[in-house]
Design a protein around this nucleic acid. Structure first.
Lengths: 249, 249
DNA sequence: ACAAAAGTGTTAAACGTACACCCATGA
DNA sequence: TCATGGGTGTACGTTTAACACTTTTGT
């Protein structure tokens, strides 16, 4: 079956299953080897890169829809999600699928609800959908060079801004790091998200004072030099701080 | 024409004009006489209170839709708006209009995009729509007693939480106060939004250091005691601070 | 005169930042 | 033994919070 037939068949099915005019797009952040990455797909149709996204089932919760989509793309359930913006410009997707019938599902005007997700890089097995030639982790610093579809670059950039803002009053890491991690891992994550170096000693104290870390009786062996201590998050405290935030005024 | 006919007629028209399944709801904050108020309407149909809201035209930008709705309800254009959450639970509006046909526009499942707006209380002339018996400012501290429809109470409370959070890194006031105001006015606003007293001297200095205030050569006459100085916002600086930290890479 | 308003001073605590030193330990 | 990691001390500047005092001025 060629692309065209495939797209047109999918279109009919989508009209059956989903709410029209509403889409969700997700910026999935992962962290590995000291670099921040996001999950991107590459369209068969026009070779443009785009965010994992989809549509909301007629009786489905919006958040659930995002989880479903992300499960299909990554094999991970129970992903940490947060809605961060709505992209409702009527022209935002106009140019795509010009050579398809106007009744094509994909040619509707879509209002897209932007989510970001924080996931453990190692748990993810990126899986392209039927209309994409690849789904893979892209290093954040490389995305400027990519040909990105529609307003997806704008969505990505807004997501990162939101994540950085959020970082000042809520911790991250629980969803981005493995269960056991070292202080260097955590600091590296913060440095990557914030895009700047932090002082090690101060970072150590800050984290310690927050009370979200729990030291384990293990070290990470195998590397050169001293084996670093492993930590895990104190889930109770961590979730509390997520709820309350850290107050000013 | 009775309510029923009216609602059914409006339904047909809505199918023509608007995107299905998408609504917008707005928490309009106003400030007067030291108290924070929001704009609420009371439904003719079942006497429940609800937020000013509406639907998005088939070729209309989401933000524009909200502005249009708010213009109809308040007579004010160019309102300060911010999207803060999406309410996408498929059951969120199920119970309403039980005695109407299932094809009624209003009985669709709606995903609602939540906005909050900050407006100058005095510029607003609340106007009920054709299905409401009233549209009026409600003091924030009185809303607990009201019978509020669907999940609108949740929407309101989430809006206030977002506004408070925002207050810690961005100024408010420009959209909530008259052009000319006193320092007490401004401090009262902050105290009301935050729900606690602030120290006058420190507040004065903080505002002064922010550089967003411009002292006028006028005082507010007429009250007892010393006439307070009037200020206005330095719009340049104010808007700069609103943007601050939002760098695209 | 009185009370509200504007503006300033002062102080202690809290916090962020920078740097530097100690010890432990795996290869 | 040396590079890395963990942990702590200390010093400095900035910010915040709390409080108090002064001066101005409208009624």
């Amino acid at each position: 079956m060629d692309f065209r037939t495939q797209i047109i068949n999918a279109s009919a099915e989508s009209y059956e299953k989903f709410l029209p005019h509403i889409s969700v797009d997700t910026v999935v952040f992962g962290f590995d080897q000291g670099s921040l990455r996001i999950l991107l797909l590459k369209m068969n149709y026009n070779k443009e890169w785009f965010l994992p996204g989809g549509y909301v089932g007629k009786e489905e919760d919006t958040d659930e829809a995002v989880k479903r989509v992300l499960y299909e793309r990554s094999g991970v359930k129970d992903i940490f999600l947060e809605e961060f913006a709505v992209f409702g410009n009527p022209q935002r997707s106009q140019q795509s699928f010009a050579d398809y019938p106007d009744t094509l599902w994909n040619k509707q005007r879509f209002i897209s609800i932007g989510y970001y997700a924080l996931v453990n890089y190692k748990h993810v097995v990126p899986q392209p959908d039927s209309l994409s030639e690849t789904c893979q982790w892209i290093d954040f610093k490389d995305i400027t060079e990519l040909n990105i579809t529609m307003d997806h670059r704008k969505i990505i950039s807004k997501a990162l801004r939101t994540l950085r803002e959020r970082l000042s009053y809520k911790p991250i890491g629980y969803n981005l790091l493995p269960d056991k991690f070292t202080l260097s891992d955590l600091q590296g994550l913060y440095e990557t998200v914030l895009g700047k170096k932090l002082n090690r000693g101060n970072f150590y104290r800050k984290m310690k004072n927050m009370g979200i870390l729990q030291k384990l009786d293990e070290q990470r062996k195998g590397g050169a030099h001293k084996a670093p201590d492993l930590y895990k998050f104190n889930v109770e405290t961590y979730k509390n701080i997520l709820q309350e935030g850290l107050n000013t005024w």
